[in-house]
Write a protein that binds this DNA or RNA. Structure first.
Lengths: 114, 114
DNA sequence: CCTGTGACTTGCATTTTGAAAGTCATTGTA
DNA sequence: TACAATGACTTTCAAAATGCAAGTCACAGG
């Protein structure tokens, strides 16, 4: 097996998730968001080109799946795969540490779907 | 309280740790590394300017402390603060997920000190 | 025909990253 | 006394990533 930087598991995780936006998209998915506009309307205001890029990379990495929810015209939504769901404990650990060290921060609530 | 991007704990954590290098420096510290050359000699080969930048930011963020270990000439080493130590569960969760999804990766061993 | 919606794409300026080489004080070696 | 080595950085500059604004494309409704 050949690794990009090293055989460290942390390093390899950072190669896919190590930036300021990717984990926020995962967070939104965990909270129940599925559609493009839902992601762009999160308070961090991700730029649409960055979002498109991250969705593509996450799909390639097998963390999310793109699925049409209607035809004429076809529209897509995104869902976490099992691999993506597996990141929940990582997010949990980050939230625990984050809430402790950034006073005033608060876990975001799940979003409702029809 | 005023936040850079939002009041989400994950977002605020990413504002300090969300890149490809910062967590690797933390990893090295957790493994027992303390000195500049120890960090640059890790297999990921961090560039010295990036390392200097990250050490400065981590110190500012209160995750590490810089301390002289000799005079004439003065030399420094870095140590995790309690806040920095608190990240261990985050690293643990990442390692668990990483080892599962990147076959062949393996937790790095602690380094020895004289 | 005109407006709106959803999911993007394009263009371009600003910012960050990365590789390589340089600095500076002091110590050890010849 | 000169010279190489060590440790902890700093500087330079090109390449890549980010961010903002605007544009596209297919269809639906009025």
């Amino acid at each position: 097996m050949k690794f990009k930087r090293s055989s460290c598991p942390i390093t390899n995780v950072l190669d896919t998730l190590g930036d300021k936006w990717t984990l926020l998209v995962i967070r939104d998915l965990v909270l129940g968001k599925r559609r493009y506009q839902e992601f762009t309307s999160s308070p961090e205001r991700i730029a649409s080109n960055i979002l498109a890029d991250r969705l593509k990379k996450l799909e390639t990495a097998g963390l999310i799946a793109r699925q049409a929810y209607q035809r004429n015209p076809v529209r897509y939504e995104y869902l976490l795969t099992e691999k993506g769901e597996g990141l929940k404990p990582v997010l949990e650990a980050i939230i625990v540490w984050g809430k402790k060290h950034y006073p005033g921060t608060k876990r975001f609530p799940r979003v409702e779907h029809r």
